[in-house]
Simulated scan of single mutants.
Amino acid sequence: MADHTMNIRDARAHLADIISRAEAGDPTVITRNGVPTAAVVPMEDFEALEDALDMYLAQQADLEDADEDDAPPVGMAEMVAEIFEERRGSAA
């Protein structure tokens, strides 16, 4: 997967190419004045991030409701990695 970065002006001129790259699995980071401000990512990745966030927030709510001091916390990075692995495994 290549790392593509593009300023807003170039992104406007090449939107179709950026979308094609996203469909192929390559994200593009859009910058404004040299600062990353947005990303065009494959839809599967976006959905996986949404799912991971939903699961993470639900898990945190469950932990707070249960008041379980013995339960080890699960970090967001770990949760996202697990979701991505599950999605990529089911796509194969």
Rank of each mutant, 00 (worst) to 15 (best):
Met1Ser: 09
Met6Thr: 15
Ile8Val: 14
Ile8Phe: 14
Ile8Gln: 10
Arg9Pro: 00
Arg9Asp: 15
Asp10Cys: 05
Ala11Trp: 09
Ala11Arg: 08
Arg12Gln: 12
Ala16Ser: 09
Asp17Thr: 12
Ile18Thr: 07
Ile19Val: 15
Ser20Met: 01
Arg21Ala: 14
Ala22Cys: 02
Ala22Val: 07
Glu23Gln: 12
Pro27Trp: 04
Pro27Phe: 05
Pro27Ala: 13
Pro27Glu: 12
Thr28His: 03
Val29Leu: 05
Thr31Phe: 07
Arg32Met: 13
Pro36Thr: 11
Pro36Tyr: 10
Pro36Leu: 12
Thr37Arg: 13
Ala38Leu: 11
Ala38Glu: 09
Ala38Tyr: 04
Ala39Ser: 10
Ala39Tyr: 01
Val41Pro: 00
Pro42Trp: 02
Pro42Asn: 05
Met43Gln: 09
Glu44Phe: 08
Glu47Trp: 07
Glu47His: 09
Ala48Leu: 10
Asp51Thr: 15
Asp51Met: 12
Ala52Lys: 07
Leu53Pro: 00
Leu53Ala: 12
Met55Trp: 06
Met55Phe: 06
Leu57Asn: 12
Ala58Ile: 06
Gln59Trp: 02
Gln60Phe: 03
Asp62Val: 02
Leu63Thr: 07
Glu64Tyr: 08
Ala66Thr: 06
Ala66Trp: 03
Ala66Leu: 12
Glu68Val: 08
Asp69Phe: 09
Asp69Thr: 07
Asp70His: 04
Asp70Val: 05
Pro72Met: 02
Pro72Arg: 01
Val74Gly: 01
Gly75Val: 10
Met76Tyr: 14
Met76Lys: 04
Glu78Asp: 14
Met79Ser: 11
Val80Leu: 15
Ala81Cys: 01
Glu82Tyr: 05
Ile83Glu: 09
Ile83His: 08
Ile83Tyr: 05
Ile83Trp: 01
Phe84Gly: 00
Phe84Thr: 03
Glu86Phe: 03
Arg87Asn: 06
Arg88Asn: 04
Arg88Ile: 06
Ser90Lys: 08
Ser90Ala: 15
Ala91His: 07
